[in-house]
Computed example of a mutant assay.
Amino acid sequence: MAAKILAINSGSSSLKFKLYSMPEEQAIAAGQIDRIGQEKSEFTLKTATDSLKTELQFKDHLTAVRYVISQLLDRNIISDMSEISGVGHRISNGGDYYKQAVVIDDDVEQRIDEMSVLSPLHNPVNLLGIKAFKKILPNTMQVAIFDTAFNATIPAKHSLYALPYEYYEKYGIKKYGFHGPSHQYIAEQVQAIDPSKSHKVISCHLGNGASISAIKDGKTIDNSMGFTPLAGLIMGTRSGDLDPQIIPYMEQQIGLNAAEVKEILNSKSGLLGISGTSSDIRDLEEAMDEGDDRATLALQMFIHRIQSYIGSYIAELDGVDSIVFTAGIGEHDSYVRTEVIKNFSFLGIKIDNQNNDNNELIISTKDSNVQVMVIPTDEEIVIARDVYSQLNN
């Protein structure tokens, strides 16, 4: 059946959306609103024939959603709100409750709210988007698509922490892994592009938030993020892995409380914390070229952590067919890709410098033992497909 589906990604002060015509998977419109709740918000909208960029003020997510729907109507992208058959919401953490997409009802909302303790930066604002769309499109199917769902196949030997086992049984303390829609899309794309190189895939989602997945025959066997999206790689403002004893040390020696430590680890650490200047990789590379030692150190640490995870995942997979770079940094930063891969030359992995500089699909040489790829991620189409499946059910 034909359907128009909205894929939604709600942030703390942003709302990203993409409208698809299904099942042909045609993107009709896409856009976002930034700086919701601030004095000046920015709205962008793109279609195949038109684009719009304007500054307005949106006091909350409900106001933002109303404006998005009004623009779709005013520009004849849809003729009536009833044309939207389903809305898919990207949700950070579904815990062990949800291992696939699910139609949202009151119980699902309650579970999403309950899991906010594990994803405090994401689940609460994801829920704001759900409530706003339910209010404006009350008769439209709302579907939750979880970042953790694609990682539900991680085996216990990789997902459990060496804590008393009852903590897992009673409180669900385990590795959940994140960025599921992105890693799922990469796995599917590698399979479509070259099935012979799709059995053992390492997917590197490198952006302000970053994670790496080990994927075997289309299923995740490990992911660098953990119980929360704070674990794993060094990120824009997130610390990634650290010695857990650092947390009580910070509380006792510096006099910080738990909320302050959480704020530091999530919002003041990572590339920003080490460099002292920026969380943006482009700024740091520019500063490195100008001789900034701390920017250089931040980049070196970022690259080292990526190399460490790739190395361990090659061991877990017992080899690797394809290494894929995706997301903002992964798709556009040839320097990071070069630095990450060069330490794997002993495995016969070789980069084609020209293809790498041009962000081509395949950036490895023809005689490379492992295929290295750059694939732009598309989490929204994964969301739209899940919603379409639910509609057909």
Rank of each mutant, 00 (worst) to 15 (best):
E290G: 07
M301F: 15
S239K: 13
I274F: 14
S267G: 13
H199K: 06
A287P: 12
Y249C: 02
I254E: 09
I254M: 08
G232L: 08
D280G: 05
G236M: 00
Q300S: 10
H205E: 01
D280W: 05
E263F: 05
G273I: 14
I274L: 15
R238S: 00
D289I: 13
K268E: 09
E251M: 15
I246T: 13
D217L: 14
R282Q: 06
E260C: 07
I246N: 09
Q307E: 07
I306P: 05
L206Y: 00
M250Y: 12
S239A: 15
E290K: 10
I303V: 14
S278K: 01
L272Y: 07
A287F: 14
A295R: 03
S203M: 03
G209Y: 02
S198C: 06
D283E: 08
V201Q: 00
S203G: 05
S278A: 14
A231T: 15
G273Y: 12
H304I: 10
S198L: 06
H199I: 04
D289V: 11
Q300G: 03
G291W: 11
I303P: 03
G276P: 14
Q307N: 08
I215R: 01
G273V: 11
L297S: 06
S239E: 14
G255N: 11
P229V: 06
S198G: 04
D241S: 15
T228A: 05
A231Y: 08
S211N: 10
G255K: 10
A287D: 09
D293N: 14
S203T: 13
S224C: 10
P248Q: 06
S211Q: 09
I246Y: 14
V201L: 01
P229M: 04
D293G: 12
G226P: 06
N208R: 01
Q252A: 13
Y249N: 03
R305L: 02
I274S: 12
H199A: 08
I215C: 04
R282V: 07
Y249A: 03
K262F: 08
Q300E: 12
F227C: 09
T237I: 07
